[in-house]
Design a binder for these strands. Sequence first.
DNA 1: ACGAGATACCTCGCCTGTCAAGGTATTTTA
DNA 2: TAAAATACCTTGACAGGCGAGGTATCTCGT
Lengths: 111, 111
Amino acid sequence: MSISADTLRGHTDTIILAQLMRGDNYGYEINKNIQQLTQGEYGLKEATLYTAFKRLEQGGLIASYWGDDGPGARRRYYAITDEGRKRWAESRQEWENTRALLDALINVEEV
Amino acid sequence: MSISADTLRGHTDTIILAQLMRGDNYGYEINKNIQQLTQGEYGLKEATLYTAFKRLEQGGLIASYWGDDGPGARRRYYAITDEGRKRWAESRQEWENTRALLDALINVEEV
DNA sequence: ACGAGATACCTCGCCTGTCAAGGTATTTTA
DNA sequence: TAAAATACCTTGACAGGCGAGGTATCTCGT
């Protein structure tokens, strides 16, 4: 986890939505996927993760149900809603914009 | 100001340092430069701006002095320190990394 | 001469997202 | 059968952003 979380603040929800775009999944696994995708450089803290799930569900962007199939402890699965899909698309677009802005703001043209 | 500030949270200090890399400047002007660079899409709120200056100065990344030359009210100028330059270079590098991570996390490979 | 508006700085208190710490329950494995 | 892994959840503290409000100076039109 070499990335300071504060620079990713505000993107947590989008990251989770993106994972759920690939299909229903449960918290632990989602977080493992995130860690894999970033070669272990980034992962959500559990408190952050579950806070985000709660927030997203209350906002109607995801829905949850209990699944008890697999090994290990019981799992709460999450599914992205239509509204969630819409939000993801928007956030993705916004990210493109933010990225361009920060590129312009953080770099200094050579003197 | 169409960009939600939370997606830029954590980058405020770096943005300010980048502006000061171009030379000494004062708060109001720095913020105007930022707005210009982003075609008015982004600007720091004053409270955010001055909070950041305080934080940066206390951290030894910038230094300030009063200048009374120009028109309008008195101005407090800021100069980036050696430590500030170092920090900017680090943050810039970290941004490259963060950008790559978010690209990987927010986009979903097609099914 | 003077009031409006621009310039410029600053503080207080609220809100929100992150996370360390602590807790519960189940299953696998040595 | 105890340890470790899996999996979920809550509480309280903390930090950064910012709305709202405030101060002081200068310019410009009338």
